[in-house]
Amino acid sequence: MGPILKVDNINVYYGAIHAIKGISFEVNAGEIVTLIGANGAGKSTTLQTVSGLLHSRTGSIEFLGESLMGIPAHKVVSKGLAQVPEGRRVFLQMTVEENLEMGAYTRSGSGIDADLEKVYTYFPRLMERRRQIAGTLSGGEQQMLAMGRALMSRPKLLMLDEPSMGLAPILVEQIFEIIRTLHRAGTTILLVEQNAQAALAIADRGYVLETGKIVTAGTGAELLASPEIKKAYLGG
């Protein structure tokens, strides 16, 4: 299968700051692709540009053969692209179930209830706490909620921004296990991570970002084995 997401030469600015300098990459259907790199390398900015929260001045973004350039974020979701934002950003004053309903905001019809059940089977904790206000959940549970919420839009491509951030190691493991499960169930995944080791271990391919540019690309295994990557990002 060909690429479902094709990003070509995007340039993004925050005011005068040139945050993304001509990045190009693609994600093929069924893959897990990861963007790794240090803090401030432009990983999150790249995701936000794809999801329409930020806009590129140049180049093109194609999703399932359709251009996403200039399309506002609220219209991108219904095309099959969901983002789990950095810092989870669940709606803290709404209940768990209301958060999940918001994930299905653009959908209508009978499939929603079935998907809600599906999310609850992926995340039994959320089922137990469905009537609770999201602000009362732990960090790990909020991450699960953010992922479940994104799944409620039935995405063809799920973009995860730092899902392991701030979580205890045991929870990080759980989150990565869920990502693998989602992938096995057929979801294509674009994963942004600072935890390069864990990300590369489950990724088909990876891109390494440095100060707004892609400096290296390869399969997960290649990048894991590369001495330079090891030195720069894997602590040894």
């Binding site: 609220h74 918001m102 905001y105 839009s153």
Partner: peptide, 24 residues
């Protein structure tokens, strides 16, 4: 209501609401 919940979502986090497909 769906609209009312969308309003609450917008009031909490506009960016996240947009990611849900809500027209802010």
């Amino acid at each position: 209501s769906r609209m009312g919940k969308a309003m609450r979502a917008c009031s909490e986090d506009r960016g996240a609401a947009q990611l849900m497909g809500i027209n802010v």
